[in-house]
Amino acid sequence: MSTRVRWLGHSCLLFESDGRHVLVDPFLTGNPKAADSADTVPADLILISHGHGDHIGDAVAIAKRTGAPVVANYEIGEWLKEPGQGLTDVHGMQHGGGRLFEGIARVKLTVAFHGSVLPDGTYGGNPCGFLITFPDGTKVYDAADTALFSDMRLIGEEGIDLAILPIGDYYTMGPDDALRAVTMIAPKSVLPIHFNTFDAIAQDGKAWADRVRRETQAEPVELEPGQWFDIPRRPG
């Protein structure tokens, strides 16, 4: 079975590869678009891009229920180990660093331009995106919450099968900058996230997908929250 991704609404993503699950930014409780719950979503590995409540979400509760290790930046990693959160299997990494989680995926932290403060007001360090390489070789770049930046072109040199980009504007890239990001990354497919959850980030996802088809070589992925997509591999 190929690696596949399920959009759970907002920026929450569930990847399945070789029977293992990688859960990203698990904001489910309080998410009006959530397509799963913290009580049922599977996880063998949890990734947190930054400290905002709409991304760290239910990570602590899910990690305690499933026993999944958690990957975040160093500052969030230390916060997760404090008594108030009480996690122990935490990997507080730094940008540019990666780690192989045997049988699940290799995860590398990428730069992201955004803010990061934890729900209790604690400084959450620098936000990040993720370059995820699955056991079958599928490469996914989840930009998470970010502005456009020119080094996306370097990330694209990795040979990205699926790019995941915010298009909501206001807090992140909007549709125009996200389209420029597609051009720089040159992925085989692209999935938009972080839009239509709240009024401030309302966007026409279909209109953006049409522009991707017309103006780039990538194939847009149009999902409703809860739907799956089998990630096609690039040739070679």
Rank of each mutant, 00 (worst) to 15 (best):
Y171R: 08
A207L: 11
P166R: 09
S189I: 03
L191E: 06
E222L: 05
P192D: 08
G168Q: 02
G174E: 10
I185G: 01
G168I: 03
P187Y: 08
K206T: 11
Y171S: 13
R214H: 04
M173D: 07
K206Y: 14
T216F: 09
L179N: 04
A181W: 04
V212Q: 03
M173A: 06
A218Y: 04
K206M: 12
T197H: 05
A200L: 15
D210G: 05
L223T: 10
G205M: 12
D169E: 14
K188V: 07
A178S: 15
D169V: 09
R213H: 12
Y171H: 13
T172A: 03
I201P: 00
T216N: 08
I201A: 02
V182K: 02
Y171N: 03
E222R: 05
G174T: 10
A209T: 04
A209G: 06
A202Q: 15
D176K: 14
I201S: 01
T216G: 10
I167R: 03
K188Q: 12
R180H: 07
G205Y: 01
Q217K: 14
E222D: 12
R214Q: 13
I167Y: 06
K188C: 05
P192S: 13
T172K: 01
T183G: 01
A186Q: 11
P220C: 07
D210L: 03
N196D: 15
W208F: 13
A218Q: 07
M184G: 03
Q203M: 13
K188L: 12
I193W: 00
P192E: 10
I201C: 03
L191W: 08
M173T: 06
R214M: 12
E219W: 06
T172M: 08
A178R: 05
P187T: 06
T183S: 08
